[in-house]
Design a binder for these strands. Structure first.
Length: 283
DNA sequence: CGATTTCCCTGGCCGC
DNA sequence: TGCGGCCAGGGAAATC
């Protein structure tokens, strides 16, 4: 369940590892969600970026100079879905991809003999290659709200966005349209930290300020800890994150609230398991 | 046309 | 021990 902190952790590891590398070959699992990976062949990696939960690998044609007539290049977009993992494999003997590793969905061979490998047990992930600057055709990405650390994301924008819809605030946070990068874990944590009921449909100015700040601080702490590993998540080095030891709310139904000691309860909002404290999270 | 529901996937876990 | 059934859940397609 990679959310913004997990994807950012991987981005920070991959950027120095593959920037400058040239993609010379590719093999994929035969499914339309993954076969677009082939379109990255013949390109050079400029840098590894991120938007919400999407990794955006900036590509230019091999040999092109930045800002040349080759244009603005392309983005190799990788969404990790639920169980996606990316890592760099330095074993040249496996570069052709003829040997099989379980659940591999794509392997990009690099000119220096290494390769970038994407595995995804449950195939909720997705790969695309699109011209930089154009709509990606991925609806969630094209409609994505501001990054949580962007000045465009503030309490007033959050409040007006929430109040403009009748949907539960938890649902809206997961939609990616009010703010980018929250998934079920960090949404529950942020709502708990801000003292906002997950089914609330309106925010006061004061609560919007608390929630905007909580979103930023929860995501910062998640990045700082290298993400949350409950089961599947591993970073680009194969290591687990550490934020699972700092969770106050997510997955703790039945346990006492760290703030008021009341029993945390589980409910379902928009088909998503939701944990919260009835006492300190008011509508 | 925006809101809501369904479906995609498979490993892990629970209970019998 | 074996196995059926259920759960996890982001996002896109289908439907309301």
């Amino acid at each position: 369940m990679p959310e913004l902190p997990e994807v950012e952790t991987i981005r920070r590891q991959l950027d120095p590892a593959i920037s400058g590398a040239v993609i010379t070959d590719c093999v994929t699992f035969d499914h339309p969600k993954f076969t677009p990976a082939h379109l990255a062949v013949g390109r050079r990696v400029v840098s590894v970026g991120r938007r919400g939960k999407y990794l955006l690998v900036h590509l230019l044609p091999d040999g092109a100079a930045t800002g040349s007539a080759a244009g603005n290049g392309e983005h190799l977009i990788v969404h990790l879905g639920m169980t996606g993992r990316l890592h760099v494999d330095a074993d040249r003997r496996r570069a052709t991809g003829t040997d099989d590793e379980p659940y591999r969905r794509a392997r990009w061979t690099l000119a220096d003999g290494r390769s970038l490998v994407f595995t995804d047990v449950r195939r909720f992930g997705r790969i695309a290659v699109v011209p930089n600057g154009a709509p990606t055709g991925l609806a969630t990405l094209d409609r994505m709200g501001p990054e949580p650390f962007d000045p465009a994301f503030d309490a007033l924008a959050l409040r007006s966005g929430v109040n403009a819809s009748r949907r539960a605030i938890k649902t809206q946070l997961l939609s990616q349209q009010l703010v980018a990068g929250l998934g079920n874990i960090y949404a529950d944590e942020a709502l708990w930290a801000a003292g906002v009921h997950p089914a609330a449909r309106r925010l006061t100015v004061a609560r919007a300020e608390r929630l905007a700040q909580a979103i930023r601080s929860v995501l910062s702490a998640g990045i700082e800890a290298g993400g949350t590993t409950l089961r599947d998540y591993r970073d680009a080095n194969g290591d687990s994150g550490g934020f699972q030891f700092q969770l106050h709310c997510y997955g703790r139904a039945g346990e006492p609230c760290d703030r008021c000691a009341a029993e945390l309860v589980r409910t379902v909002i928009d088909a998503r398991s939701t944990t919260f404290c009835r006492v300190c999270q008011r509508r």
